Simulated scan of single mutants.
Amino acid sequence: MHLEGRPAVVRYAREAIQHELDTLGLGDADDEAVRECAEVVLLIVSELVTNACRHSPGPVDLRIRWNDHVLTVEVDDRGKGVPVLVDEEDRGAGGGFGMGLIDALADGWGVKPQGEGKTVYVRIAFP
């Protein structure tokens, strides 16, 4: 989905991904572990889109892919910098918690250069 220029972009992204998770039967699954993974996806989407808003000219596109019980979230932005893990002692009022949270919750994440910016991707394995 294209995010650029949308008001309240983080809320829009979460709502759109919630709809997709429900369509896949993940957000409202009978299995509590699956529902918890879906909640993790929403938190990660919020963090990725927020980071793109704070550290770049803003998010451009958001994608999810579902393949063999693994959901991949991708956010494209035009920022030149790449996300980094901030040491715990350096986190504070100015931030630094987002990628640590993603690193702790995700099964993998990374960054790929793309055009004028980058794609940040996160993988979450579902039971």
Results as ranks from 00 to 15, higher is better:
V9K: 14
Y12T: 15
A13I: 01
E15R: 08
A16S: 14
I17D: 03
Q18Y: 12
H19S: 11
E20W: 08
L21C: 02
L21I: 00
L21E: 01
T23G: 00
L24F: 00
G25R: 07
D28Y: 05
D30L: 10
D30M: 11
E32R: 09
A33D: 11
A33V: 14
V34P: 14
E36M: 14
C37W: 00
A38H: 00
E39G: 12
V40M: 15
L42N: 06
L43W: 12
I44N: 13
V45I: 08
V45M: 05
S46W: 00
L48F: 03
N51S: 10
A52W: 05
A52K: 08
H55T: 04
H55F: 10
H55P: 01
P57C: 02
P57D: 15
G58N: 10
P59G: 08
P59I: 08
V60E: 10
D61A: 12
L62Y: 04
L62M: 13
R63E: 15
W66Y: 09
N67V: 10
V70F: 10
L71N: 09
L71K: 09
T72K: 04
E74Q: 04
E74P: 03
R78E: 02
R78S: 02
G79P: 06
K80W: 02
G81R: 04
G81W: 01
V84K: 09
V84D: 02
E88R: 13
E89D: 03
R91C: 14
G92H: 14
A93T: 05
G94A: 07
G95M: 06
G96N: 11
G100R: 02
L101D: 03
I102P: 07
A106G: 04
A106Q: 03
G108M: 07
W109G: 04
W109F: 00
W109P: 05
G110I: 05
V111L: 02
V111G: 00
K112F: 01
P113L: 05
E116N: 04
K118M: 01
T119Q: 13
T119D: 07
Y121I: 04
Y121F: 15
Y121T: 11
Y121H: 14
V122E: 07
I124H: 06
A125H: 04
